[in-house]
Amino acid sequence: MTDIAIQLEGVSLDYPKHKSGGGLLREVLTGRFRKTRDEAAWHRAVNNLDLTVNCGEVVGIMGPNGSGKSTLLRVIGGIYAPDEGTVRTRGRITLLAGVGTGFNRDLTGRENIMLTGSIFGFGHKEMTEMSPSIIDFSGIENFIDEPLRTYSSGMRARLGFSIVSHMEPNILLLDEVMSVGDHDFRKRSRARIEEMVRGDATVVIVSHSVNLMRELCDRVYYLEGGQFKTDGDKESTIKQYQSDKEGD
């Protein structure tokens, strides 16, 4: 798979309908829920999906709420392992979704940069070289040596986006392109995303924005009930999305 960045073969994923608290201890201990799929407790969020994305391609995924878009991104990102089928990805993956979490409140902004970097697999030296540019982009250099709990949520989001966007991923997974910070920062982050999308990275975007899809993507799929309803053709997918929306 020299040119293939992402390959999904017959991938299915079950997701619990009720999160923690609803389960029986016995169920966990015996693993009963693994063998007999309890229809009441699990629903199939991604259903027997095949997808091949070549290196450098930009693929969009549209669909109604709850159609499995975000779950699919997490499957590609390796956060959820498939319950059936195989997922193969090549290179460093970054999932951009709801930035800001995963930080430590008691560490300073600078320390959080180092920590996040190490989670993404960067060494101490690489991160030391990278952090001035991260701090610069985030625009919060005055607060960078303060603990994170003193930050406003906007500052946290800016730092989060700035770190993640510097991780130079080979595969970039974008969930609902973010709108964080003030107008100026939104513009810069939008530009940065487009720069990444147009660069070498392989990108999968989940969004409701028709303009964004039309502008950036090579292929767009329509996802509903965990399955692709279109073959990836941009215009027909957008048409289906728009007609579905009107039908609501």
């Binding site: 193969r88 290179g91 460093r92």
Partner: peptide
Amino acid sequence: MGRDEDSVLELHAE
């Protein structure tokens, strides 16, 4: 450490 450009991550159901 971590994952570099050429590393392939393969996740199965097994």
